[in-house]
Protein backbone atom coordinates (compact mmCIF):
# COMPACT_ATOMS: atom_id res chain seq x y z
CA UNK A 1 0.00 0.00 0.00
CA UNK A 2 2.64 2.47 1.10
CA UNK A 3 4.73 1.38 -1.81
CA UNK A 4 2.16 2.42 -4.38
CA UNK A 5 1.65 5.64 -2.53
CA UNK A 6 5.35 6.30 -2.68
CA UNK A 7 5.40 5.87 -6.39
CA UNK A 8 2.03 7.34 -7.15
CA UNK A 9 2.09 10.51 -5.15
CA UNK A 10 5.36 12.18 -5.92
CA UNK A 11 7.82 10.02 -7.71
CA UNK A 12 6.59 9.45 -11.23
CA UNK A 13 5.58 13.01 -12.14
CA UNK A 14 8.65 14.54 -10.59
CA UNK A 15 10.84 12.01 -12.27
CA UNK A 16 9.30 12.45 -15.68
CA UNK A 17 9.50 16.20 -15.40
CA UNK A 18 13.12 16.15 -14.29
CA UNK A 19 14.58 13.08 -15.91
CA UNK A 20 12.10 12.19 -18.62
CA UNK A 21 14.61 12.58 -21.39
CA UNK A 22 17.55 11.17 -19.45
CA UNK A 23 18.96 7.71 -19.88
CA UNK A 24 17.97 5.03 -17.41
CA UNK A 25 21.23 3.73 -15.86
CA UNK A 26 20.00 1.36 -13.18
CA UNK A 27 16.64 -0.35 -13.12
CA UNK A 28 15.71 -2.63 -10.23
CA UNK A 29 12.37 -4.39 -10.15
CA UNK A 30 10.87 -6.56 -7.43
CA UNK A 31 14.24 -7.49 -5.92
CA UNK A 32 14.25 -10.21 -3.24
CA UNK A 33 17.18 -11.29 -1.12
CA UNK A 34 17.23 -13.43 2.04
CA UNK A 35 19.91 -14.83 4.28
CA UNK A 36 18.32 -17.96 5.73
CA UNK A 37 15.19 -16.79 7.53
CA UNK A 38 16.25 -13.17 7.33
CA UNK A 39 14.29 -11.67 4.43
CA UNK A 40 16.28 -8.52 3.84
CA UNK A 41 14.88 -7.32 0.50
CA UNK A 42 11.25 -8.16 -0.27
CA UNK A 43 10.40 -6.65 -3.62
CA UNK A 44 12.53 -3.54 -3.87
CA UNK A 45 12.25 -1.20 -6.88
CA UNK A 46 14.56 1.58 -7.96
CA UNK A 47 15.44 3.61 -11.01
CA UNK A 48 18.55 5.71 -11.41
CA UNK A 49 18.86 8.14 -14.29
CA UNK A 50 21.85 9.74 -15.94
CA UNK A 51 23.37 12.65 -13.99
CA UNK A 52 21.08 11.92 -11.06
CA UNK A 53 22.09 11.74 -7.41
CA UNK A 54 19.77 9.37 -5.62
CA UNK A 55 20.05 9.05 -1.85
CA UNK A 56 18.87 5.90 -0.08
CA UNK A 57 17.90 6.26 3.55
CA UNK A 58 16.95 3.48 5.92
CA UNK A 59 17.62 2.14 9.38
CA UNK A 60 20.79 0.29 10.13
CA UNK A 61 20.39 -3.36 9.12
CA UNK A 62 17.58 -2.61 6.68
CA UNK A 63 19.59 -3.98 3.75
CA UNK A 64 21.09 -0.87 2.17
CA UNK A 65 24.58 -2.36 1.80
CA UNK A 66 23.14 -5.63 0.53
CA UNK A 67 21.26 -3.68 -2.14
CA UNK A 68 24.44 -1.94 -3.35
CA UNK A 69 26.30 -5.25 -3.38
CA UNK A 70 23.60 -6.83 -5.55
CA UNK A 71 24.11 -4.06 -8.09
CA UNK A 72 27.79 -4.92 -8.66
CA UNK A 73 27.35 -8.68 -8.32
CA UNK A 74 28.90 -9.05 -4.88
CA UNK A 75 25.63 -10.49 -3.61
CA UNK A 76 23.15 -12.58 -5.56
CA UNK A 77 19.44 -11.76 -5.31
CA UNK A 78 16.94 -14.61 -5.04
CA UNK A 79 14.36 -13.03 -7.32
CA UNK A 80 13.69 -9.95 -9.40
CA UNK A 81 15.31 -8.10 -12.27
CA UNK A 82 18.37 -5.92 -12.08
CA UNK A 83 19.67 -4.01 -15.07
CA UNK A 84 22.74 -1.79 -14.90
CA UNK A 85 23.79 0.20 -17.97
CA UNK A 86 21.36 -1.96 -19.98
CA UNK A 87 23.07 -5.18 -18.84
CA UNK A 88 21.16 -7.92 -17.08
CA UNK A 89 23.42 -8.27 -14.05
CA UNK A 90 21.84 -11.49 -12.82
CA UNK A 91 22.69 -13.38 -16.02
CA UNK A 92 25.94 -11.75 -17.03
CA UNK A 93 29.00 -13.83 -18.00
CA UNK A 94 32.05 -13.25 -15.81
CA UNK A 95 34.07 -11.37 -18.43
CA UNK A 96 31.24 -8.96 -19.16
CA UNK A 97 30.64 -8.49 -15.46
CA UNK A 98 34.23 -7.30 -15.08
CA UNK A 99 33.76 -4.82 -17.91
CA UNK A 100 30.59 -3.55 -16.28
CA UNK A 101 32.34 -3.21 -12.93
CA UNK A 102 34.86 -0.84 -14.48
CA UNK A 103 31.95 1.51 -15.15
CA UNK A 104 30.41 1.28 -11.70
CA UNK A 105 32.55 2.67 -8.88
CA UNK A 106 31.99 1.51 -5.31
CA UNK A 107 33.06 3.46 -2.24
CA UNK A 108 33.03 0.96 0.61
CA UNK A 109 31.79 1.80 4.07
CA UNK A 110 35.12 1.43 5.87
CA UNK A 111 37.21 2.68 2.90
CA UNK A 112 38.50 -0.88 2.26
CA UNK A 113 42.02 0.24 1.31
CA UNK A 114 44.43 -2.67 0.79
CA UNK A 115 46.51 -2.76 3.97
CA UNK A 116 49.56 -4.28 2.35
CA UNK A 117 49.84 -1.71 -0.42
CA UNK A 118 50.90 1.94 -0.51
CA UNK A 119 48.43 4.64 -1.50
CA UNK A 120 49.94 4.62 -4.98
CA UNK A 121 49.57 0.84 -5.33
CA UNK A 122 46.01 1.05 -4.03
CA UNK A 123 45.14 3.46 -6.82
CA UNK A 124 47.09 1.55 -9.45
CA UNK A 125 45.33 -1.70 -8.61
CA UNK A 126 42.02 -1.08 -10.42
CA UNK A 127 43.86 0.58 -13.33
CA UNK A 128 46.21 -2.33 -13.91
CA UNK A 129 43.46 -4.87 -13.42
CA UNK A 130 40.86 -3.29 -15.64
CA UNK A 131 43.04 -1.77 -18.32
CA UNK A 132 45.96 -4.10 -18.86
CA UNK A 133 47.22 -2.36 -21.93
CA UNK A 134 47.66 1.04 -20.32
CA UNK A 135 51.30 2.16 -20.39
CA UNK A 136 53.07 3.05 -17.17
CA UNK A 137 53.28 6.76 -17.87
CA UNK A 138 49.59 7.29 -18.11
CA UNK A 139 49.02 5.22 -14.96
CA UNK A 140 51.32 7.52 -12.99
CA UNK A 141 49.53 10.50 -14.40
CA UNK A 142 46.06 9.19 -13.61
CA UNK A 143 47.08 8.27 -10.05
CA UNK A 144 48.48 11.72 -9.40
CA UNK A 145 45.48 13.42 -10.95
CA UNK A 146 43.01 11.40 -8.87
CA UNK A 147 44.96 12.14 -5.68
CA UNK A 148 45.11 15.84 -6.50
CA UNK A 149 41.36 15.85 -6.97
CA UNK A 150 40.91 14.62 -3.40
CA UNK A 151 43.67 16.92 -2.12
CA UNK A 152 46.10 14.19 -1.04
CA UNK A 153 48.91 14.25 -3.59
CA UNK A 154 51.51 14.33 -0.81
CA UNK A 155 50.32 11.04 0.68
CA UNK A 156 51.15 9.02 -2.42
CA UNK A 157 53.86 6.87 -0.85
CA UNK A 158 52.28 6.34 2.57
CA UNK A 159 50.77 3.09 3.79
CA UNK A 160 47.06 3.06 4.72
CA UNK A 161 47.93 2.55 8.40
CA UNK A 162 49.69 5.92 8.39
CA UNK A 163 46.52 7.73 7.29
CA UNK A 164 43.76 9.17 9.43
CA UNK A 165 40.17 8.00 8.91
CA UNK A 166 39.35 11.03 6.80
CA UNK A 167 42.45 10.64 4.64
CA UNK A 168 41.65 6.97 4.11
CA UNK A 169 38.18 7.91 2.89
CA UNK A 170 39.72 10.44 0.49
CA UNK A 171 42.13 7.85 -0.91
CA UNK A 172 39.26 5.38 -1.25
CA UNK A 173 37.33 8.03 -3.14
CA UNK A 174 40.32 8.62 -5.41
CA UNK A 175 40.56 4.86 -6.04
CA UNK A 176 36.86 4.82 -6.93
CA UNK A 177 36.97 7.71 -9.40
CA UNK A 178 40.24 6.74 -11.06
CA UNK A 179 38.50 4.58 -13.68
CA UNK A 180 36.05 7.42 -14.38
CA UNK A 181 32.97 5.28 -13.81
CA UNK A 182 29.56 6.24 -15.17
CA UNK A 183 27.91 5.45 -11.83
CA UNK A 184 29.32 5.65 -8.31
CA UNK A 185 27.79 3.76 -5.39
CA UNK A 186 28.57 5.32 -2.02
CA UNK A 187 28.03 3.16 1.08
CA UNK A 188 27.75 5.60 3.98
CA UNK A 189 30.65 7.80 2.85
CA UNK A 190 30.79 9.70 6.13
CA UNK A 191 30.35 6.81 8.58
CA UNK A 192 32.93 6.40 11.32
CA UNK A 193 34.22 9.97 10.89
CA UNK A 194 33.94 12.88 13.29
CA UNK A 195 31.35 15.52 12.27
CA UNK A 196 33.89 17.99 10.90
CA UNK A 197 35.72 15.41 8.79
CA UNK A 198 32.38 13.98 7.69
CA UNK A 199 31.40 17.41 6.44
CA UNK A 200 34.70 17.71 4.56
CA UNK A 201 34.13 14.37 2.85
CA UNK A 202 30.60 15.38 1.92
CA UNK A 203 31.91 18.60 0.42
CA UNK A 204 34.57 16.66 -1.43
CA UNK A 205 31.99 14.31 -2.91
CA UNK A 206 30.02 17.33 -4.14
CA UNK A 207 33.17 18.70 -5.80
CA UNK A 208 34.01 15.34 -7.32
CA UNK A 209 30.49 15.18 -8.72
CA UNK A 210 31.07 18.52 -10.41
CA UNK A 211 34.37 17.37 -11.94
CA UNK A 212 33.42 13.87 -13.05
CA UNK A 213 29.67 14.28 -13.67
CA UNK A 214 28.74 10.72 -12.73
CA UNK A 215 25.39 9.49 -11.56
CA UNK A 216 25.42 8.42 -7.92
CA UNK A 217 23.56 6.13 -5.61
CA UNK A 218 24.33 7.27 -2.08
CA UNK A 219 23.54 5.69 1.26
CA UNK A 220 23.69 8.39 3.89
CA UNK A 221 22.50 9.27 7.37
CA UNK A 222 23.67 12.85 7.09
CA UNK A 223 20.44 14.58 6.10
CA UNK A 224 22.15 17.94 5.51
CA UNK A 225 24.60 16.36 3.13
CA UNK A 226 21.88 14.27 1.54
CA UNK A 227 19.79 17.38 0.97
CA UNK A 228 22.66 19.23 -0.63
CA UNK A 229 23.43 16.46 -3.08
CA UNK A 230 20.20 14.53 -3.65
CA UNK A 231 17.92 14.99 -6.59
CA UNK A 232 15.70 12.31 -5.14
CA UNK A 233 15.36 10.12 -2.06
CA UNK A 234 14.34 6.52 -1.62
CA UNK A 235 13.32 5.26 1.80
CA UNK A 236 14.23 1.60 2.25
CA UNK A 237 11.98 0.12 4.88
CA UNK A 238 10.89 -3.47 5.48
CA UNK A 239 12.68 -4.57 2.35
CA UNK A 240 10.77 -2.35 -0.08
CA UNK A 241 11.12 1.13 -1.55
CA UNK A 242 8.71 2.50 1.03
CA UNK A 243 8.66 5.99 -0.42
CA UNK A 244 10.39 7.79 -3.26
CA UNK A 245 10.49 11.48 -4.01
CA UNK A 246 12.20 14.84 -3.79
CA UNK A 247 13.05 16.38 -0.44
CA UNK A 248 10.26 18.97 -0.50
CA UNK A 249 7.59 16.32 -0.86
CA UNK A 250 8.99 13.84 1.60
CA UNK A 251 9.55 16.41 4.32
CA UNK A 252 5.92 17.52 4.13
CA UNK A 253 4.59 13.96 4.03
CA UNK A 254 2.00 12.97 6.59
CA UNK A 255 3.19 9.38 6.77
CA UNK A 256 4.76 8.91 10.22
CA UNK A 257 7.33 6.47 8.82
CA UNK A 258 8.49 9.02 6.27
CA UNK A 259 8.45 11.78 8.86
CA UNK A 260 10.73 9.71 11.08
CA UNK A 261 13.53 10.23 8.57
CA UNK A 262 12.94 13.87 7.72
CA UNK A 263 11.27 15.56 10.67
CA UNK A 264 14.47 16.61 12.41
CA UNK A 265 13.76 20.27 11.58
CA UNK A 266 10.24 20.48 12.95
Amino acid sequence: MMQTEGHGLFAKEEMNAKFGRKKLLISIKNLHKSFGDNHVLRGFNLELYDEENLVIVGKSGSGKSVLLKCIVGLAFPDKGTLRVLSKDVLNLPKAEMDLLRAEVGFLFQGSALYDSMTVRENLEFPLRRHKDRMVNESIDQLVLEALENVGLAEAIDLMPEELSGGMKRRVALARTIILRPKIILYDEPSSGLDPITAREISQLILNIQKIYKTASLIISHDIDFARSIANRFVILKEGIDYATGIYKDLVTSNDPNVKAFFNYET
Binding site: R101, A112, F125, P126
Partner: peptide, 20 residues
Protein backbone atom coordinates in the same frame (compact mmCIF):
# COMPACT_ATOMS: atom_id res chain seq x y z
CA UNK B 1 44.47 -13.02 10.28
CA UNK B 2 45.39 -11.24 7.06
CA UNK B 3 42.64 -12.72 4.91
CA UNK B 4 40.19 -12.47 7.83
CA UNK B 5 40.74 -8.76 8.22
CA UNK B 6 40.62 -8.27 4.46
CA UNK B 7 37.28 -10.04 4.49
CA UNK B 8 35.66 -8.06 7.29
CA UNK B 9 36.93 -4.69 6.05
CA UNK B 10 35.54 -5.45 2.56
CA UNK B 11 38.99 -5.42 0.92
CA UNK B 12 38.13 -8.74 -0.73
CA UNK B 13 34.93 -7.21 -2.13
CA UNK B 14 36.92 -4.20 -3.32
CA UNK B 15 39.29 -6.53 -5.14
CA UNK B 16 36.44 -8.35 -6.80
CA UNK B 17 34.91 -5.15 -8.21
CA UNK B 18 38.37 -4.14 -9.44
CA UNK B 19 38.30 -6.87 -12.04
CA UNK B 20 40.29 -9.36 -9.97
Amino acid sequence: AELGSMKVTEQIDAMEVSGT
